[in-house]
């Protein structure tokens, strides 16, 4: 028996919209800890890891660990039928082949339920160890989104370099080149608008802008984004989900062949 009641249902709507173009089908793993997901894109270049902790739900019942395979496009179709202010409850039975989404309007005058077919997904789970990163950049998520969008009109790849000067985003294309440098900026009253650079050593890595632009679909989930870089690891782009958990995107770099 599974029953998860999420008062801020819009969070689930946003999460699915953020990952559905990257991942087609995924297993949602439900345990006492919370609802989690790990999936790679079809070309195995990017990986998404989601955690919604049980404490973030108003009611959380998960009698035993369960993995539910869902088509994210179908899930998106169903969740789009929920209002932004609706409370969403996810219900499932052990061993069942469907899941039910119940939507309640804030004043309880409209209650809908949508039953979705589950699917068997043979997905591989990768172990992601804790790592020390050469540099961690925290910046406004809207700024990061703007940079990725702007640069993708000029080039296909971006070099992200962190030095003591700041974080530099560089691209090159047929029409020319572009460099955007963001310096550390802690002086603002609002911490969400700050750019904070923690650097242990300088790092410079190249990534496909197509993927970074896809990750920025999570921008509405969090005011700030954290970019963790190491020369020998995929970049981690993390959006915190208020009081509940996170959505992390891992992207393998491009290297000189």
């Amino acid at each position: 028996m599974l029953e998860l009641r999420l008062v801020q249902g819009s969070l689930l709507k946003k999460v699915i919209e953020a990952i559905k173009d990257l991942v087609t089908d995924a297993n949602f793993d439900c345990s006492a800890t919370g609802l989690s997901l790990q999936a790679m894109d079809s070309s195995h270049v990017a990986l998404v890891a989601l955690l919604l902790r049980s404490e973030g739900f108003e009611h959380y019942r998960c009698d035993r660990n369960i993995s539910m395979g869902m088509n994210l496009n179908n899930m998106s179709k169903m969740l789009k039928c929920a209002g932004n202010d609706d409370i969403i409850t996810i219900k499932g039975d052990d061993g069942g082949d469907t899941i039910t989404f119940m939507f309640e309007s804030p004043n309880q005058d409209k209650i809908s339920d949508f039953e979705m077919k589950l699917m068997d997904i043979d997905s591989e789970h990768l172990g992601i160890p804790e790592a020390e990163y050469h540099a961690i950049v925290k910046m406004p998520s809207s700024e990061f989104s703007r940079i990725c969008k702007d640069l993708s009109s000029i080039g296909d790849t971006v070099v992200i370099s962190v030095t003591k000067e700041g974080v530099k985003f560089t691209t090159r294309g047929d029409i020319g080149t572009a460099n955007i440098v963001c310096r550390q900026n802690k002086t603002i009253d609002k911490p969400d608008e700050a750019t904070i650079i923690e650097m242990n050593e300088p790092v410079s890595l190249t990534f496909a802008l197509r993927y970074l632009n896809s990750f920025t679909k999570a921008t509405s989930l969090s005011e700030s984004v954290t970019i963790s870089l190491s020369s020998d690891l995929p970049v981690v782009i993390e959006y915190k989900i208020a009081d509940m958990g996170y959505i992390r995107f891992y992207l393998a770099p491009k290297i000189e062949d």
Binding site: L47, H125, I128, A252, K254
Partner: peptide, 14 residues
């Protein structure tokens, strides 16, 4: 030539 590498080259299957 710049080549895209796979996420699998970094993390092992569990």
């Amino acid at each position: 030539i710049i080549a895209q590498i796979s996420i699998r080259q970094f993390y092992k299957k569990i």
